[in-house]
Design a protein around this nucleic acid. Structure first.
Lengths: 204, 204
DNA sequence: GTAGCTTGTTGAGCGTTGCTCAGCAAGCCG
DNA sequence: CGGCTTGCTGAGCAACGCTCAACAAGCTAC
């Protein structure tokens, strides 16, 4: 055991919780530049200053790791969007919409990358994001004081896909003012779940 | 060169065109069960009865291969959807919509897998599908006899995202009749690009 | 202090997969 | 027959996900 046999970087020992949090945090930082599933264990371990093996000690498989990262990203967005429970219903929806556009404006590519990655092949990642969307739709329907039957849920989910796509394009090429965009989104939602004849017919 | 040294399967020699087509075809057959990017060279080569090396002779990289497969899938859908040029404008749009829903009904999971894979991380795959969507929007705007300014293109693209999401859910849980679904989709499109105040304001 | 336990941590190594390269072999022309 | 093109292969490398046996840092018990 000579001095030269010791590792150059003295190993930093952390509690399990700290280490896990650090690894997830590194994943979050890498998200904007790399699709979740393409994160390499090597890269993450290198950034954390640990060996590959240790990462597998905390996350049994690579999938388990990047699912955790995805969940963390989804939770960040959720906490940013979800309205204060006390606010008036009208304001809850417009507030969520406003904050959503703000979120996309702030993160731009990284948000798009996140949504894309979430939509991509992997079912585990997809599920995490779908779950977040479902919860957002629930909140929206509750705020609108509408019953959430199957049809309305489908419509609001589809409206959310519409919103994601439109806002995603809008931040790169603003074809209208921000308030007009918000009005348009809200109007479309209103038209869909509010006073649409097809909906009343189908509410059998 | 004894007889035993010769390959068990006498190698089948094809023209470059044939071989390429065969490999793409195998990719198409695997698409429903596997996200494009997760196709393995081994698997494809095995099914084609050739060596891995040969696949790299036709497609320099794996990405080049699955991009070709994606392009082929997108072309199939495009050819199924694109309306006859002679048809009356109104019918062109409703026909496309009808055929789109039919397409999703027919392929269900495999179509969803395709869209998902296309939306997923890989920019090359994304681009192929985005390109198809853009062309569909162009055709739709032309059929509606509307100018295709930037705003309208964004709106129709977003409407297409709406449609994909709604139809995707609808085939799994039909919350309304097929004609009602078609009417709803067409009405939403009309409402978006036709007589919307926000649009007239923004048509500066 | 030291024996022993827990647990954070590592290095060596295995299997798969994307990719390279030198060269074989089948047809064709001179 | 020699030489050319070109479809095709096998050996092998590097990267990556993942396993496993073992080390070592800190704690408690005596």
């Amino acid at each position: 055991m000579t001095a030269s046999s010791r590792p150059a970087h003295p190993r930093e020992r952390r509690t399990a919780g700290d280490r896990r949090a650090q690894l997830v945090q590194i994943g979050l930082e890498l998200l904007p530049t790399t699709p979740v599933q393409e994160l390499t264990i090597d890269e993450v371990a290198r950034r954390a200053g640990i060996s590959r093996s240790l990462l597998f000690h905390y996350f049994a498989t690579k999938r388990e790791y990047y699912t955790a990262v995805t969940r963390a990203a989804a939770d960040l967005m959720w906490e940013h969007l979800v309205p204060a429970p006390g606010a008036p219903p009208e304001e809850q929806v417009t507030g969520m919409l406003d904050r959503y556009v703000g979120w996309v404006e702030t993160f731009r590519e990284s948000h798009l990358a996140f949504v894309r990655g979430a939509a991509g092949g992997d079912p585990w990642v997809t599920e995490v994001y779908d779950d977040t969307r479902r919860r957002l739709v629930e909140v929206a329907l509750a705020a609108l004081e509408l019953p959430d039957d199957a049809l309305r849920r489908q419509l609001v989910l589809a409206w959310f896909a519409f919103t994601e796509d439109l806002v995603g394009h809008w931040v790169h090429e603003p074809t209208t003012t921000r308030p007009e965009l918000l009005d348009l989104l809200r109007d479309v939602l209103r038209g869909l779940v509010g006073d649409r004849p097809a909906l009343r017919q189908a509410g059998r």
